[in-house]
Amino acid sequence: MDKIAMLLSSSLVYQAGGLVVGILVFSSLVIWILAKTPLAPHTQELKARVQSWWIMAVFFFSAILVNPKITIGFFGLMSFWALKEYITIIDTRRADHRALLWAFLCIPIQYYWVLSKWYLMFLIFIPVYMFLFIPLRLVLVEETQGFLAATSKIQWGMWAFVFSISHMAYLSVMPKIGATLASGQSLLLFLVIVTQANDVLQFIWGKSFGRHKILPKVSPNKTSEGFWGGTLSTAFLSLFLRFLTPFSVVECLFFAYCIAIAGFFGDLVMAAVKRDAGVKDYGQMIPGHGGVLDRLNSLCYTAPIFFHQMAYFYY
């Protein structure tokens, strides 16, 4: 019986994978056609972006499909790369060295709680124990100059890139919901596809119709046309992904809209972090996108919110 349930839920992964491959084939075709027109010089960046999407999709779906341990390890690696990019761009003091080492050490520990499904520990380890431990470790160095700033920077990094990202890993090990085919795994797909679609749609709407800037000091590309067009079209397009979830149509629109709003603000908050650190993007890991963090920034906000909505309403 378990075998059949597993097969059925992995058939959801294949369907979602097919959908994503379809979208990517379509985008590649559009760019291929555009490259034959006079618009060709403008397609270079788009081409790099879509190529990276292909690679990211392959990695993500393989990580989800192979087995749950690989999924958890995959998000652990994402946390590692994101935290590394984050501490590289911010200012750190020589005195922060050991505390930063502990911030990295808490990645395997946090993902171990996921692996062992110790829910309470997963929830409190970083917000309680590490929150108290980081200032404790910093105080041992006896460097009070910049103490509070260093503490908050490290805590924020651990929260956003370890705690928050690990919610996706925990979602992937959540069980099947009632009589539906949906499971934590398919909800994770819903969350990730909707979040990334929201990023792309906001970009497309903003580029095509963007006039009125919102918060230009933080992110010059964000426009109210991009915001409304992006969030609303994300919510409607999410109806195509309803097969991954136990949602009714209204619920699906509601949760997708929450993801769209959270993703928008996640993006803005990370843009402010980058601006504070004085860089444009987090690195050159992914051609056309910047670093791993540039892809994860919306998920830092959407993952914990969607996870706790699901935990409240469905588990």
Binding site: F80, K84, E85, I87, T88, T92, R94, H97, R98, L100, L101, F104, G283
Partner: peptide
């Protein structure tokens, strides 16, 4: 930053 003088542990900075 990754391995300062007088430090034995490596912290991964890019």
């Amino acid at each position: 930053r990754a391995l300062p003088k007088g430090e034995i542990f490596l912290v991964p900075f890019i």
